[in-house]
Amino acid sequence: MAHPVDVAVGNRVRELRIRSGMTQQTLAEKVGVSFQQVQKYEKGANRMGASRLIQVASILNVPVSALFQDIDNDGAAVEPLDRDAAKVARDWRAINDDKTRQVMRDVIRALSKAG
C-alpha cells in the first residue's frame, strides 16, 4: 500500500507537470526512466528518493519544497489537487496577449461570483 506522503508528493508532481505543459513521456525522458515509472511516481506506488526528487524539481523548474507544499505531516494535501485548475494554468501560460488575459480574468471572476 502506498504511503500517503508518497501519494501526495506524486499528486503534486503530476500537478506541476501538467501546469508546465509537459507530458509523462517528456518527463520520463528527462529523468531517464520509462513513462510507466513516472506514472508510478505520480500515483505514489513507487517512492522517489531524495536525488530523484531534486532531479524532478529541477526539470519542472521549481524548488524541491514545491513538491511538499501544502502537505501536512500525515501526507494529507491541505488543498486537494484540482486537475482542471492545473490544465487551466498550463493553457494560461500560452496566452501572450495582456488584453486577452484581462478579459479571461474578468470572465472567470464573474463566473465564480455567479456560481
Rank of each mutant, 00 (worst) to 15 (best):
residue 90 R to Y: 07
residue 65 S to G: 11
residue 80 P to D: 01
residue 82 D to K: 15
residue 105 R to K: 12
residue 75 G to R: 02
residue 104 M to P: 02
residue 74 D to T: 15
residue 92 W to I: 07
residue 68 F to P: 03
residue 90 R to P: 04
residue 95 I to A: 02
residue 76 A to S: 12
residue 64 V to D: 04
residue 83 R to P: 07
residue 108 I to E: 07
residue 75 G to L: 01
residue 77 A to C: 12
residue 67 L to C: 09
residue 75 G to E: 05
residue 65 S to P: 06
residue 98 D to W: 00
residue 98 D to E: 12
residue 67 L to S: 08
residue 69 Q to T: 12
residue 71 I to L: 01
residue 99 K to M: 13
residue 94 A to I: 07
residue 78 V to M: 14
residue 102 Q to A: 13
residue 106 D to P: 08
residue 97 D to S: 10
residue 86 A to N: 06
residue 92 W to Y: 10
residue 78 V to K: 14
residue 107 V to T: 09
residue 84 D to L: 12
residue 84 D to T: 14
residue 68 F to M: 08
residue 62 V to D: 12
residue 96 N to H: 14
residue 81 L to P: 08
residue 100 T to D: 11
residue 62 V to I: 01
residue 103 V to K: 14
residue 62 V to P: 02
residue 75 G to I: 03
residue 106 D to F: 00
residue 66 A to S: 15
residue 102 Q to S: 10
residue 93 R to E: 13
residue 72 D to V: 01
residue 81 L to H: 09
residue 80 P to R: 00
residue 66 A to R: 15
residue 69 Q to C: 07
residue 67 L to V: 02
residue 92 W to R: 09
residue 86 A to I: 06
residue 93 R to K: 15
residue 78 V to A: 12
residue 80 P to Y: 03
residue 75 G to S: 11
residue 77 A to H: 00
residue 101 R to W: 06
residue 69 Q to S: 13
residue 74 D to R: 03
residue 86 A to D: 09
residue 107 V to Q: 09
residue 78 V to Q: 13
residue 110 A to I: 05
residue 73 N to G: 15
residue 90 R to L: 04
residue 74 D to H: 15
residue 77 A to E: 15
residue 82 D to P: 04
residue 105 R to S: 07
residue 82 D to T: 01
residue 72 D to F: 00
residue 83 R to G: 03
residue 65 S to H: 05
residue 99 K to Q: 10
residue 109 R to N: 09
residue 91 D to G: 01
residue 95 I to S: 03
residue 72 D to S: 04
residue 72 D to E: 04
residue 93 R to V: 03
residue 92 W to V: 06
residue 90 R to C: 10
residue 106 D to Y: 00
residue 106 D to Q: 15
residue 107 V to S: 00
residue 92 W to T: 05
residue 91 D to P: 05
residue 97 D to W: 00
residue 83 R to C: 02
residue 64 V to Q: 12
residue 95 I to E: 04
residue 66 A to M: 08
residue 85 A to Q: 10
residue 107 V to I: 13
residue 102 Q to C: 05
residue 87 K to M: 12
residue 64 V to N: 07
residue 82 D to I: 04
residue 69 Q to I: 02
residue 109 R to M: 05
residue 94 A to K: 15
residue 110 A to H: 11
residue 70 D to E: 13
residue 108 I to R: 13
residue 89 A to N: 07
residue 107 V to H: 07
